[in-house]
């Protein structure tokens, strides 16, 4: 299923394919026509992809086929051992994590996990964690500290789950605790916003020494739909809310909320996951190398300084 703004591109692509098929089977020379259409396609792509609105980027961030946490682990890491459960209440499939090797060294990874289809999405609760998911993440943070290994978190959630069971089991409390636990890591901590960075449910695993973001990911205090429902009293005004929230990677870089934007191939990571993941690998590798030089005390101080400086106000 193409995204709304991808439809004209898809149409042109299928028209070209049709003509090429016809030319091959009939022997009629259509090379001029096909060349013309290819040029038009290239222009259309560059116009569309160079001028993506914030709302279009939000759709790319949610596109089926966009690399998820498990895709990143499978493609960029080896020896992955998934670890499950919070040792307190249950297992939350909305959050995955475990041990792996990245460029030969052991790392501890955790991330929100979306499903690849409806069935898996239901099992994973559309990557909206319950408290158990955050407790699992904290358990993995403990492990990173205990073994002195870097902690890498992949953010991709519409938000923490807003439901009765989550509230009963202290959703707010575990998010606060997870923020605090991650802030206290004595090892390098890197957070990468892969797709959706929905509010406190994202930040709970977002307290990295460095926070990286994929070019078409979004990260904000609320989803554009919920923001629109509150401020415009109409969720259909989500496109306006997306503009107002300045939730894209370039916006967040300008605000200092993220440290580095990882480029995606034209039109988004879902159009060429391999290329996107290669860029992610390079960014992760450079970031871990930089942080690897810091002592535990320096890492704590670095993380404090990074978040201490965020916010804008006037001295009274």
């Amino acid at each position: 299923m193409p995204l709304e703004f991808e439809k004209p591109i898809e149409e042109l692509e299928s028209k070209i394919a049709e003509l090429e098929g016809f030319a091959a089977s009939s022997g009629v020379d259509l090379s001029d026509e096909i060349r013309g259409l290819r040029e038009r396609l290239a222009r259309l792509k560059s116009e569309t992809f160079a001028n993506l609105s914030r709302w279009e980027r939000v759709q790319i961030a949610r596109a089926p086929g966009r690399p998820t946490t498990l895709d990143v682990i499978a493609q960029l890491m080896t020896d992955f051992v998934e670890l499950s459960g919070d040792r307190t209440f249950g297992e939350d499939a909305a959050v995955v994590g475990g041990l792996a090797r990245f460029e030969g060294s052991t790392v501890v990874v955790v991330g929100h996990q979306k499903g690849r289809d409806t069935k898996e999405n239901i099992r994973r609760n559309f990557a909206m964690p319950h408290p158990e998911g955050y407790r699992k993440a904290m358990r993995l943070m403990d492990m990173a500290d205990r073994f002195g290994r870097p902690f890498i978190a992949f953010i991709d959630t519409p938000g923490a789950y807003p439901g009765i069971s989550a509230e009963e089991r202290g959703q707010a409390w575990v998010i606060a605790q997870s923020i605090q636990r991650m802030a206290r890591l004595r090892v390098p901590a890197v957070a990468v916003v892969l797709g959706e960075g929905g509010s406190g449910g994202a930040l709970a695993i977002g307290v990295g020494n460095r926070v990286l973001i994929m070019e078409n990911a979004w990260y904000s205090v609320i989803s554009p739909e919920s923001c629109a429902a509150i401020l415009w009293r109409d969720a259909r005004e989500a496109a306006k809310a997306a503009e107002a929230l300045k939730l894209t990677a370039p916006d967040l870089l300008a605000l200092g909320v993220v440290d580095r934007v990882i480029p995606e191939p034209d039109g988004g990571a879902h159009r060429n996951p391999q290329a996107a993941l290669a860029n992610l690998k390079q960014a992760l590798s450079e970031t871990l190398a930089e942080l690897g030089a810091l002592s535990p005390e320096a890492l704590l101080e670095d993380r404090y300084r990074r978040f201490r400086g965020l916010g804008q106000f006037l001295e009274g």
């Binding site: 606060a176 923020i179 605090q180 401020l231 929230l245 605000l255 909320v257 201490r308 965020l310 916010g311």
Partner: peptide, 19 residues
């Protein structure tokens, strides 16, 4: 968190917690 300051409001959660 205040919507009109978006991601910066979100970051106050981390800042206050770290303090």
């Amino acid at each position: 968190a205040r919507m009109q300051e978006a991601a910066l409001s979100l970051m106050q959660m981390a800042k206050t917690t770290l303090a």
